[in-house]
Design a protein around this nucleic acid. Structure first.
Lengths: 193, 193
DNA sequence: CTGATTTTGAACTGACCGATACATAACTGG
DNA sequence: CCAGTTATGTATCGGTCAGTTCAAAATCAG
């Protein structure tokens, strides 16, 4: 055919993702992206078309891996309440530097809102999947009696998503893990028996 | 003395604040700030020194007015639980367009983190004042028996600040007021009797 | 080896960035 | 009315922005 790529596309997306995650969309220049990925400008534009498009790819890579991890926890062992506690726990990062970066989705929502383009679509899709996963687990929790009776799955899903978002903002503030755990415990106490 | 200002400084800060609030720090250019305030470049730089300094002024204007409003609610009538409910309510903006902008503090935290400059200092000060106000109200709530016994005021303050931050992120997502109210009610149910 | 196809690197594009220089305008104390 | 001082408007600064151009390099089918 023709000259083959000298780099792995997914690896490049992942490196770009970390650059965007660390500095935000606007503050990450195309030059930064070249240095982060190790690619030349031509390769970046030839492969990803534009900064916005590369950001969308980065965002989707982030949401994809993150949602899979969350799904794995929710599909794991234990009562629904225990699994939800594990999800909140996983949102409380161990590494201090990573914690300071917060969540790429929350950071993007705050910086860009939900723009009227593919980035907005990706953000909306992430929200929807999170709400669906949480709501399903809440239904299971009512059945296995680890959660209270009469809870509205959709409402509690919003509550849990709001709680994880709040935790990520706390992380950005530099709040200690201890305080974040206390917050997670209080939130769970609202829905557990 | 000399030639007098042709504009009101506080009014200019407020207009700049709205520009930063709507588009974020990085995406708001000095040109945007000139147009938003109605000032020429010279006047902007003569008065505020730099974009960063004007942002700091804008942020402090935002936090000042917002904290005063919150303090007024917490100093108002009703049980502590009722006053906390009123604070959460006030974080659920009525106007749909304003709601979409979220909170300038949360947006800034997400975009810039807590930078090692006066902006970071202002963000930290806002966090501290919020936590102090909430903790004090929680202490009152334990005394007036509208909140549960044995609550740790500092922990609950973090929980409430996390909840308001989460609500602001939901607002950025475009979540309905109805869902936001459901979230606020669930959060309160964790600490009320 | 050749020709078609694609990637790559380097130089470059016009536009815009935050910030400044400076002449002129507007004011006040003397 | 003038000297001193500050505010303003215009033009401009060097630098960086996202994105493009284009020739050289690398590959493979024939």
């Amino acid at each position: 055919m023709a000259r083959p790529r000298e780099f792995d596309e997914t690896a490049a997306v992942e490196k770009a993702m970390h650059a965007f995650w660390a500095h935000g969309y606007e503050a990450t220049s195309t030059q930064d992206l070249c240095e982060a990925t190790g690619l030349g400008r031509s390769s970046v534009y030839n492969t990803f078309s534009s900064k916005k498009a590369l950001f969308r790819r980065s965002l989707e890579h982030y949401t994809g891996t993150r949602l899979d991890k969350r799904q794995a926890i929710l599909d794991g062992p234990g009562t629904a309440a225990e699994r939800l506690a594990a999800v909140l726990d996983s949102a409380i990062e161990d590494d201090a530097d990573e914690r300071r970066r917060g969540c790429l989705v929350v950071n993007t929502l705050a910086e860009l809102g939900v723009p009227d383009d593919e980035v907005g679509t990706a953000l909306q899709a992430d929200t929807d999947r999170n709400l669906t996963m949480f709501a399903e687990c809440v239904r299971e929790g009512v059945l296995d009696a680890s959660l209270r009776d009469g809870l509205d799955p959709a409402e509690v899903a919003e509550f849990l998503l709001s709680t994880t978002s709040g935790l990520r903002v706390m992380a950005r503030r530099g709040t200690s893990r201890r305080s974040m755990h206390a917050v997670a415990d209080l939130a769970l106490s609202a829905i557990t028996r």
